[in-house]
Design a protein around this nucleic acid. Sequence first.
DNA 1: ACTTATAATAAGTCATGGCTTATGAAGATA
DNA 2: TATCTTCATAAGCCATGACTTATTATAAGT
Lengths: 103, 103
Amino acid sequence: MAYEDKLFAALADPTRRAIFEHVAGRRQSVAELARVMPVSQPAISQHLKVLKEARLVRDEASGARRIYSIDPEGLGPLRAWLDRFWSDQLAAFKAVVETADDS
Amino acid sequence: MAYEDKLFAALADPTRRAIFEHVAGRRQSVAELARVMPVSQPAISQHLKVLKEARLVRDEASGARRIYSIDPEGLGPLRAWLDRFWSDQLAAFKAVVETADDS
DNA sequence: ACTTATAATAAGTCATGGCTTATGAAGATA
DNA sequence: TATCTTCATAAGCCATGACTTATTATAAGT
């Protein structure tokens, strides 16, 4: 599976996005997430695995716990993808405006 | 289903993303897309329906054809979502730097 | 009018994915 | 050592979704 595919797929699920947003707000353990989210601990672990493979989060051992935090570079590729269309659309918009000026 | 959910879900499928990128490159009909993509015409129509409900594309009748084009505002919410974390991460990074300055 | 082209919808198949409970491994605590 | 916590993995269930072929509707061309 291509990397970009993993990134978009990881963000597609609402529960997983919620977990990501929690982790982005504050680094925390699996148990903490399980306490606040409406799914079981294994479900949390499974989501975190997907997020990790998409490089959206990192994990770090801390005794028996495992602390998850956001991966600062993880959203870079998403932004890059987005900017591709952003500039395209700006160019297209500009072209329309300039065509209108010709009239 | 919430709007944001539809947006992310629409972009999750690689085939659908490819269709979106084609349409973004040049406005075109369903048949044109079906010619270049490795799936059937109904599959294309189904994907376009999802993209349209996510407000990523628009359609316009042109005789028997239906021309699909990108919806310029469609990616706005995605960018807004992204920027939320972008500034968060910048703030976090700044905090780390300033803490380092204190030492 | 008849045929061809275009595209949407219906119905059915099949794989994937998100969830559960059960379990085991590794660390902390008594 | 024994227990408790934390977390990951295994296995199974079930809904969803991406695809197919078949069909229908509408418009264009002859």
